[in-house]
C-alpha cells in the first residue's frame, strides 16, 4: 500500500502527456488565427473527398474543403467555446455554491441566509430538472444560433452539475474548524469565501475543470448533432464529425480526423486533471 508518493515530481508524466494531447489542438487553434493552409470554408472543386496528399494532408471533405484547415479552425472555435463556457460556469457555480453553503452553515442562520440557501438550491435543482435539449433549443431559438449563443447554452447546461459538485466539496470545507474560527473573528462571508474556502477548494476545482471542459466539448458535439450548434459553414469538431459520417465510404479521414482530435483532446484533459491532482496533492 502506498502511503504517499514521496516528493511530488515537478512535472508528472500524466500532466506532460495531457498537456501535449490537449495542448496540440489548442496550439492548432492559435495558429489558425494567423495561418491555415487554405481558407477553411473555401470549396475547391478538385478536392471533393480528396485523398491524402501533400497539398491536403488530411484529405478533402464531401464539399471539397481542406480537412486540415477546417480542423485547425474548428480547434479554435471549439476550444474557445469550451474555455468560455467553463470559465463562466465555474465562476457562476462557485458564487452560487459558496453563498448557498455559507448561508446554511451559520450557527444561527438568519432568515435571509436560509432564504438565500433555499433559493440557490431551488434554482440549481430546477435547472437540473429541465431537459438539456429543451434548454438548448429555447436558448438557441430565442437568442439565435452562432458561437456566442451556443456557448451560453453550454454554460447553462454546465452550471447545475458544477454547482452540485462544488457544494459537495464546500460542505466539507465549511465544516472545518478554521472556518468556524474565522466567523467568530467576524470575517465577512465574502472574505471567508475568497480567502479561506477558495484556496482549500481550489485543488478540487482545478482538478474538476479539465473534466468539465471535456464535457463542454462533448456537449457541443451533441448540440451540432441535433442541429443546434454553430451555423455552417463555420467548422467545429462536432459539425465536422456529424457531416462526415454519411460520407465515410468516400473519404473516411474527414470523419476520423475530428473524431481522433476530440478523443485525444478529452484524453489529454483528463490526463491533465490527473497530473494536477498528483502535483497538488504532493504539495500538502
Amino acid at each position: 500500500m502506498n502511503h504517499n508518493q514521496g516528493t511530488a515530481p515537478f512535472m508528472p508524466l500524466n500532466l506532460a502527456l495531457g498537456i501535449i494531447f490537449a495542448g496540440t489542438p489548442l496550439a492548432m487553434g492559435l495558429v489558425s488565427l494567423l495561418y491555415t493552409p487554405f481558407e477553411p470554408n473555401l470549396i475547391i472543386p478538385d478536392a471533393v473527398s480528396a485523398p491524402i496528399t501533400a497539398t491536403h494532408p488530411l484529405g478533402g471533405d464531401y464539399l471539397g474543403r481542406d480537412t486540415l484547415s477546417r480542423l485547425m479552425t474548428g480547434a479554435r472555435i471549439t476550444m474557445t467555446m469550451a474555455i468560455m463556457a467553463i470559465a463562466t460556469a465555474t465562476i457562476t457555480a462557485f458564487a452560487l455554491s459558496t453563498t448557498a453553503v455559507a448561508a446554511r452553515n451559520t450557527t444561527t442562520p438568519s432568515h435571509t441566509a436560509q432564504l438565500t440557501h433555499k433559493t440557490i438550491t431551488f434554482i440549481t435543482n430546477t435547472l437540473m430538472g429541465i431537459p438539456s435539449l429543451l434548454l438548448a433549443l429555447a436558448v438557441v431559438s430565442i437568442l439565435g444560433g452562432g458561437i456566442a449563443n451556443t456557448t451560453i447554452a453550454i454554460t447553462i447546461m454546465l452550471v447545475p452539475g458544477l454547482t452540485r459538485i462544488m457544494q459537495a466539496t464546500l460542505i466539507q470545507v465549511y465544516a472545518e474548524d478554521y472556518i468556524k474560527v474565522a466567523k467568530t473573528w467576524g470575517v465577512s462571508n465574502i472574505n471567508i469565501a475568497l480567502k479561506h474556502a477558495l484556496p482549500n477548494a481550489t485543488p478540487n476545482i482545478i482538478v474538476a475543470i479539465p473534466i468539465y471542459m471535456s464535457t463542454a466539448i462533448l456537449v457541443e458535439a451533441g448540440l451540432s448533432y441535433l442541429g443546434l450548434g454553430v451555423a455552417p459553414p463555420t467548422p467545429s469538431w462536432g459539425i465536422m464529425l456529424n457531416q462526415a459520417i454519411p460520407y465515410i465510404n468516400q473519404q473516411p479521414m474527414a470523419a476520423i480526423a475530428p473524431a481522433t482530435t476530440i478523443i485525444t483532446t478529452i484524453l489529454g484533459l483528463n490526463l491533465i486533471s490527473d497530473g494536477l491532482n498528483q502535483k497538488l496533492r504532493g504539495k500538502k
Binding site: I245, I248, I256, T260
Partner: peptide, 11 residues
C-alpha cells in the same frame, strides 16, 4: 489512440 481512429474506418 490509433486503434480508436481506425474504428470508424472499420465500421
Amino acid at each position: 489512440a490509433v486503434t480508436l481512429t481506425m474504428l470508424p474506418l472499420i465500421v
